[in-house]
Amino acid sequence: MASAFSAPHKPKIAISACLLGAEVRFNGGHKESRLCSQALSEHFEFVPLCPEVAIGLGIPRQPIRLIGDPAQPQAVGSVDSELNVTAPLHDYGVEMAALHRDICGYIFMQKSPSCGLDRVKVYQDKGRPAELSGRGIYAQAFCAAHPDLPVEEDGRLNDPVLRENFLTRVYAYSAWQDLLKHGITRRALTEYHARYKYLLMAHHPVQYKALGKLLGTIGKNDPRDIAAQYFSELMQALKKCATRRTHTNVLQHLSGYLKQSISADDKQEIQQLIAQYLQGIVPLVVPLTLLKHHFRQHPDPYISRQVYLQPHPENLSLRNAI
């Protein structure tokens, strides 16, 4: 039987509260993301956070903005520049990072001086933005404490490739948290890596080999000594978006497991759909669905454990648009 997605629980994702419709913005409004509040809320337990309200800024309030050095900006009031909330935002980020250790991802409000991940304007003398953009003060502090955590901005999630990549990483992070709860053993680590073989090959083939070599160093040593490094490198590898070419390579590998069991006509049909996927004629879900059909007819125990076949719930339809 081909791999079907199963998660023991809904992964927790922290999210900027305004994206769920909370009226916490400086103007008393919200920035509700229907994708988050409707499509994703069925599959994830959201933890809404608003650092600006949490540190005592009112609703409504004067907007804050970043000024100074883009590498280490200050967050000040846009009307009253004497208002400086850099330290409170940073400290709240550190506090929340320590409190929320069970989350598997974070969706931030884009371009926000507190929550933006990238491309946040940093103003210079006479109100001109610096050539280099910055990162929101709170987001910087939170992410520094959780360097491997999958993070994304709401606007980028409208891109199907980035959305699929982010949620794939969220579920990989969740699976790793479950592994940690049961305890790191040599067997658990090697089985986790084996399950992620083809997903890693689709995202970063070079890093897949490097991670295999890292696991080869366990020997008689304690596997816990390399677990953190392994997972950090795995998350970096998955952050790289898979391409049509790398997906095609994996689809060809998977089809090889069926060469002894299916007819010449069936093989030809698979190859035709893989070629159409590579050319951009059909989405990834089309050749994958056919492969999964054949693996149900001709089960392979190794393939049935591969996360690649179903890295997230099928009804999220994430591979219908890539």
Rank of each mutant, 00 (worst) to 15 (best):
S114Y: 07
L117G: 04
R119Y: 06
V120H: 01
K121G: 02
Q124P: 03
D125F: 01
K126A: 14
G127I: 04
R128Y: 10
R128A: 13
R128C: 00
A130N: 12
E131S: 13
E131I: 04
L132G: 00
I137H: 04
A144N: 10
A144E: 14
P147Y: 13
D148M: 14
D148S: 14
D148G: 00
D148V: 07
L149I: 08
L149T: 07
V151R: 01
V151W: 00
G155A: 07
R156D: 03
N158K: 13
D159K: 02
P160V: 14
F166S: 04
L167F: 15
Y171C: 03
Y173S: 14
S174D: 15
A175D: 15
W176R: 11
W176Y: 09
K181S: 11
H182D: 14
R186G: 15
R186L: 07
R186I: 06
A188D: 08
A188P: 08
T190F: 05
E191T: 10
Y192M: 13
Y192L: 14
A194G: 09
Y196S: 14
Y198H: 15
L199D: 07
L200E: 06
A202I: 05
H203L: 02
P205L: 09
P205H: 05
Q207K: 13
Q207H: 09
Q207G: 11
A210I: 06
A210H: 10
A210S: 13
